[in-house]
């Protein structure tokens, strides 16, 4: 059933941010809101009407929809163990990266369209960090492709288990990198603080200052979806193919919850970097994925 993973990711996205917030509250000694509180907020926003600035054009109006749609399309590419996603073809991880980039591009030009100087600043930062994080993702997926010999998500995750312990070790390292990429792509803690109230230090939040109502709800939920999507990729590294659904679904959910707890823990214990420290941090991830790439090359004995 190709749609199973799609449904699972959508379901996960409903409680993912809730778990993150709950973890943070527990670490800071509070009881915290319920797990579905973020969803309730988004639901409230979705019922509201949009308010548009007079200076903005149609770009600003379509940007949130395209952003949300791009994330949904990206989710459709994610496989589930040995089951393919809704779409699957050779090289689909490139498509995956660039469909996300399209969404990001629209959210950036949407932010620029408002003419708000703070939003322009945020857009520029977002563009820079995505630009720096992109090689990390590609090198990582490239090394996984090299390790398995396939170029589509489904085949890669299918093939990754047929190695020795090395596949699992690489899987661990890869999930480490993926967690960090997810944190950056979603503008979370070490790079950006979603709870900040100072526009000058915001990255993602400042871009959506002018969005309201339904659009804001879409944008907020897109973040949840993206988290769940990266969680699904990480979960795929550890799903055992060929196992029955009653085995893999709990693994999937477990990995997602663990991921959410890890994100919450990271956010509780890591202070936000100074803005000038962000590029080197993001580049470090590229370096690490490059190392994984070399390791795969050396282990496979493939040299140029």
């Amino acid at each position: 059933m190709p749609g199973l993973v799609f449904i699972l990711i959508i379901l996960t996205s409903f409680f993912f941010t809730g778990i993150v917030i709950r973890t943070k509250s527990i670490f800071s000694g509070r009881k915290g809101p319920g797990i579905f509180q973020p969803m309730k907020d988004i639901g409230r926003l979705l019922q509201k009407e949009n308010v548009y600035s007079q200076t903005s054009s149609f770009i600003f109006k379509i940007a949130p929809d395209i952003y949300f749609a791009s994330v949904l399309i990206a989710i459709m590419l994610i496989p589930f163990g040995n089951q393919k996603g809704i779409f699957s073809f050779d090289g689909d991880f490139v498509f995956f990266a660039y469909i996300l980039a399209v969404g990001k591009f629209f959210s950036i030009i949407g932010a620029l369209d408002t003419g708000n100087s703070l939003e322009g600043m945020g857009a520029s930062r977002e563009a820079l960090y995505s630009f720096l994080a992109e090689p990390a993702f590609f090198i990582l997926m490239g090394s996984l492709a090299l390790l398995t010999g396939y170029t589509s998500f489904a085949d890669i995750f299918n093939g990754i288990h047929f190695g020795s312990y090395i596949s699992y070790a690489i899987g661990t390292l890869a999930s480490f990198v993926l967690v960090l990429i997810a944190m950056i792509e979603n503008s979370r803690m070490p790079v950006d603080d979603p709870k900040t109230h100072l526009e000058l230090t915001m990255i993602h939040e400042v871009m959506v200052l002018d969005n309201s109502g339904f659009d804001l709800g879409l944008i907020l939920h897109a973040t949840n979806l993206k988290f769940a999507m990266y969680g699904a990729i990480i979960a795929n590294l550890f799903l055992t193919p060929g196992k029955e659904w009653y085995f893999s679904i709990p693994i999937f959910i477990g990995v997602q919850i663990l991921f959410a707890v890890v994100v919450g823990t990271l956010e509780s214990f890591i202070a936000r970097f100074r803005m000038s420290h962000n590029p080197q941090f993001i580049f470090t991830i590229t370096s690490i994925s490059l190392l994984i790439f070399f390791a795969v090359l050396l282990i496979l004995g493939k040299y140029f």
């Binding site: 420290h277 080197q280 580049f283 370096s287 490059l290 190392l291």
Partner: peptide, 12 residues
């Protein structure tokens, strides 16, 4: 620091 990371990566 950014250059340091880039250079160490280049070294590797």
């Amino acid at each position: 620091d950014f250059l340091s990371v880039v250079i160490i990566t280049c070294i590797i």
